[in-house]
Amino acid sequence: MNLDLNSIWFVLVGGLFAGYAVLDGFDLGVGALHLFARSDIDRRMLLNSIGPVWDGNEVWLVTGGGALFAAFPEVYASVFSGFYLAFMLLLFALIFRAVAIEFRSKRPGATWRTSWDISFSAASILSALLIGVALGNIAYGIPLDARHEFAGSFLSLLNPYALLVGVTTVSLFVMHGAIYVVIKTEGELNARARHWTRNGIIFFVIMYAVTTMVTLLYVPHMTELIRAYPVLFVLPVLNVLAIANIPRQIHRGREFQAFLSSCAAVFALLALFGFGMYPDMVFSSPDAGNSLTIYNAASSAPTLKIMLIIAAMGVPLVLAYTISIYWIFRGKVKIESHSY
């Protein structure tokens, strides 16, 4: 590992996607839990808990996509054309999710609201699942030819390993979303969210353990870098500690610290994934020689340098907006006249 321009961009693009997973992760999780809230008022509480922030959270995905296009156009081109139907499904899910949030509370009718509730929840679960399936395939390896074109089919993307990573992603976001609901709500809904959190943690820990075992057994190239640099063991340890810390903090009534722990767990998991992939970006199987790496998939050095200047100017601004917005909208949700 040497920190050249390409590696810096690997970290930056990874950082944008990790930011997406930490932030949109909880609102996808809230969406997955949406139908578990039975009453209209509880569902409105859930929607309004993410109301001011979900759109900004999704910008991390859009900007991550833009940065991937700019820094690693070969990855952008190969993955999006190769996973055509899967990405179309993801786009449809994200469209339905966005309009469901906006449309639901515009009319009082029960059928109207229930339809959008189902759309919102199903689209959230499907989005999380498809994101995980894509990651699972990239890690497991997809058939790429010498021109880096995808040589598999849509059904070959739905292999057991990819689906396993997909379900693990759903479980991660459910846990993360449940803790977010805990910090944003009071009273009975808060108690239910604590219950969801406990079950979410159990769900995630089981999936995490299974995925780890399967990865060790069947996807050995994901662990090469960790074998070479044992210091990286700190990541899975950090991950486990962060998750173990969640129930402890909730028990002590420190809801916010519990949420930070969950953020750290998501982040550590993404970092583990990144180190597992490095320096590959898309693993090619069976012909590993056709893999997309941070070198053969990258833009030219001048472009990476220009983009680094753009990032140096933009990232502090982005962090400033993000932190300000979360600060302004801190505290428990209240339903007001302009709420969803």
């Binding site: 900007t63 833009g66 296009f69 952008y76």
Partner: peptide, 13 residues
Amino acid sequence: GDVFGSALAAEGI
């Protein structure tokens, strides 16, 4: 990607 992608990424940021 090398050219057009930067403008798109700048739009996001």
